[in-house]
Amino acid sequence: MKRTKLFMDTTVEIQVITGRAQDIAAAAALDRAFEAFRKVEQACSRFSPDSELMQTTQQIQTPVPVSPFLFEPLKFALEVAEWTDGLFDPTVGQALEDLGFNEHYLTQQAIHNFTSASASYRDIVLDEEKHTLYLQKPLVIDLGAVAKGFAIDLAAHELQAFDGFVVNAGGDLYAGGLAETGSKWKIGIQHPVHQEQIIHTVELSNEAICTSGSYERRSSIHPETHHIIDPGSKQSPHEMVSCSVIAPYAMMADAFSTASFLSGVKHGTAFIEQVNLKALFITSDLTTVTLGGIDIES
C-alpha cells in the first residue's frame, strides 16, 4: 500500500508492506502517519505566520508554553548547536531570509522578518520542566534541519506494527523492517550533478538516511549561495556537494547531515566518528568518502 501527499515543501511518500487482511489497519496507520507531518508543519514552519513557531517567537523575554511538536525538535537543534559550538545554529533563519529563502512553497508568498543580527542559539532558553520557550532577543528560528526528520520519526512510529515500510520525505527517509522481497530496503542516493541519476545505493533496515546537498536550493539573490548557510560568515560552504548520514532516527540523520556538511570533510569526519554514525560525503570533485563501515553500491 502506497500513498503520497505534499507537506513541508516536499513530496511525502509512505509505503507499507501489508496483506489484504491488514488493509484497513494499514489505511488508518497511513492516515495517522500523514497527520504527524501536518502537526509538525503547523508547529515548526518558518513560512506560515500562524504557525506555532512564528506566533511564539513574537513574544520576547516572556516564557511561552509550547507543544511537544515544537519543543522536541527545537531542543535537539539546540543540542546539536552546542556540540558544534554554533556552526549548526537554528537562529540562521534571518540569514536565510536575507538571501531570498523566504517564500512559502504553496502560496509563494514572501515573508519578511527583521530581527537582531547578533542573535544566536544561546539567546533561546528552553525549560524542560515547564515546556516553555524564552527568547532573550528578537530572532528568526529555522528548523529545516530537524523538523522534517522529526516528522518522519513520528510517522514511522505509527507504522511499527507492519513487517516493512518506508517513510520518504523528498529523499530523506526511514526504512522499517524488510522489503517485500524479504531483504533490506535498497535506497538510492541522488547524483549531485546528474540529478535524474543515482550515484550510490545503500541497504537499510530500521534505520534512517538523510542527505544535505548544495544542489537542492539556490539563492535567487546570490546564485552561488545555497540553502546551507554558515551562521558566522553567512555564506555557503562548497567543499562538499552532498552529505548523507545514516542514523537510528531521521531527526538525528537530518541534523547531522547538515552539521557535517557545514563542518567540511575533515571536521565532518571527526564529528561522525564522535557520534558513531555512518555517512557518505561527496566532494565538489565527486570524490566519495565513506564513514562508519557504510556499504555502498555504485
Rank of each mutant, 00 (worst) to 15 (best):
L143T: 04
I111E: 06
Q42D: 12
A147R: 00
F7E: 10
T288Y: 08
A145H: 01
W83V: 02
D50S: 09
T287V: 12
I282P: 00
F76K: 01
D295I: 07
P63S: 06
K2H: 03
I246D: 13
P237K: 12
F162H: 10
V40L: 10
S257K: 08
T62I: 12
F47W: 10
E72F: 05
E207N: 13
G176S: 11
I111A: 07
F47V: 05
W185V: 02
L133G: 07
G182Y: 10
L87G: 01
K137F: 00
K266M: 03
L178M: 13
A36D: 12
D23E: 15
V202W: 11
L139Y: 00
T18F: 00
S212V: 14
I209C: 15
L291K: 04
K266E: 12
Q160S: 13
T225E: 08
T258C: 14
H222A: 06
D123L: 05
S260M: 09
Q94A: 09
D127R: 09
E203G: 09
E72A: 09
A81M: 11
F150P: 06
K39H: 03
L139F: 00
S260W: 04
A179C: 10
W185P: 01
A259E: 09
Q42F: 02
Y105N: 10
A77G: 06
I294W: 06
T181G: 04
R122M: 08
I282L: 02
I152P: 14
E273I: 03
I124R: 01
P63H: 07
S260H: 04
D142I: 05
S45H: 08
L99T: 01
V66S: 05
G86M: 04
P223I: 12
P49G: 02
Q59R: 14
A250C: 15
Q274W: 03
Q59G: 01
E297V: 11
E128P: 15
M8I: 04
T181S: 15
E216A: 14
F7K: 09
H222V: 05
G19T: 14
G176K: 09
A179S: 15
R38A: 15
V289G: 00
G171L: 08
N168M: 13
A81S: 15
Y121W: 11
Q58K: 14
A27S: 13
Q190W: 10
A250N: 03
S219M: 12
T181Y: 12
L204H: 10
A119V: 08
A208I: 00
L262Y: 02
A208Q: 08
I296E: 03
H112A: 14
E224H: 12
F162A: 12
R218K: 15
S205V: 14
K278H: 09
S51N: 09
